[in-house]
Amino acid sequence: MIRHLLGSWRSLRGEEALAFVVAALLFGAIDLAALLEMNVGDELPQVLARHFIVPIVSGVVLVLCWLPAARSSPIHPQRRQRLVLATLLGSVLSIAIVYPLADALPWRSLCDIYAASKGKPRCMTMRPVALIGDALWVFMPALMIVGVLEFRTVRRRQAQAAQDLLREHSQLRRHALAARLAALQAQVDPALLFDALVSVEQAYDRHDPAASARLERLIRHLRVALPRLREAGATLGGEAELIASYLDLLRDLNGTPPAFDVDLGTRSATPLPPMLLLPLVQRALRLGPPAQCWLRAGTVITLGFDREGLCADDGELAALRERVAALDARLVCHSGNGRTEFILELAS
């Protein structure tokens, strides 16, 4: 209980304190309009101090009573009743403290000055009816302030919940996309595989000295392309190896794949979502076989071809951009001067 009280008092936010302070100053200034009608003389500083100190003390008591209820469980079925009771308790306690404080202060109030001018006793006297009336006079506006703060708290909590849901949805979307990309990584083009097997078989039938090397390259491509059961995700070096093995396999099939140059520097182990680079290579081969292809890694990842016109935003490239965007990354294409470069900016 004590820990909750101390924790709730320490959790006071600036906007909450400002709301009570402003309300206290406004209530303290209500009676000051009478300054225009009364001559207080040299007592003006004392009158102002009294009329602002008393409501500020009352506001502090209200805050101390309200905070434990405000910091209680937001889903408790009796939260509203707790807030109302805490505000009522704060109002009663504030009046119980303000009356002795007002009597202890050496400065007169405007009401006291007016009463003295009319030969009447001081305004603030400890009468039960006055205590009840003043407590209700504090309770009603205090309850309005508490209601506004509670409404803002509920709105803030709802906004945070919406943000959490959006963040969770984004994470689930990325996980689902990663799973789909992993499934794509596990796929091997059946026509390519069949042609490669036939090519290896024919090479052995011809007693071609390169038959064994062709078989090794086919095995290498399958090892790279098929999912690695003990690895989670892919790396930039692994994707570069996949591209190299794919182009070697095409070369064995009497194709004319581009020469592949790789320079990854120290970023070979950089995590990379699978099947983001190979589809760009396959797309370039379909649109018009380039003679050279290069992969560079620095602050960004660059996949380039010595051919212009590969930036056309067709359905395949649009789908790839969507994958990249879902992974909080960015794919940019530049074409000109006899070359096309795809720049992949990964999320930090």
Rank of each mutant, 00 (worst) to 15 (best):
Y246V: 00
A297T: 14
P271C: 07
L249I: 01
D263A: 08
A240R: 06
L295Y: 01
C293E: 12
G255M: 04
G238D: 09
A240S: 10
I301D: 15
D252S: 03
A291I: 09
I243A: 09
P273V: 00
M275A: 06
I301M: 14
G288S: 15
R283W: 13
A244D: 15
P274W: 06
V300G: 04
A284E: 02
L280N: 11
E239I: 02
V300T: 07
L250F: 10
L264D: 12
V262A: 13
P257C: 04
L249D: 05
L250M: 14
N254M: 07
A284N: 07
P271R: 06
T256E: 15
S245F: 10
P271K: 05
V300F: 09
L285G: 01
L249N: 03
L249Y: 06
L272T: 03
T266K: 13
E239G: 03
C293T: 03
T266Y: 12
L287K: 06
D263P: 03
I243E: 12
L278H: 05
L272D: 04
L276D: 05
L287C: 08
L287V: 07
P271T: 04
L278S: 05
L272M: 08
S268R: 04
R283H: 13
C293Y: 07
P257R: 02
T299A: 14
A259N: 07
L276G: 03
D261F: 13
P258I: 00
G238V: 11
Q292F: 15
G265F: 03
P279Q: 15
S245Q: 14
I301R: 11
G288T: 15
P290S: 10
A240W: 05
T266E: 14
A297S: 15
A291T: 15
E241P: 05
G298W: 12
L264V: 03
P257Y: 06
F260G: 06
T256M: 11
L285N: 04
L250E: 10
A297G: 12
D252V: 01
A259G: 07
L253R: 06
A259P: 03
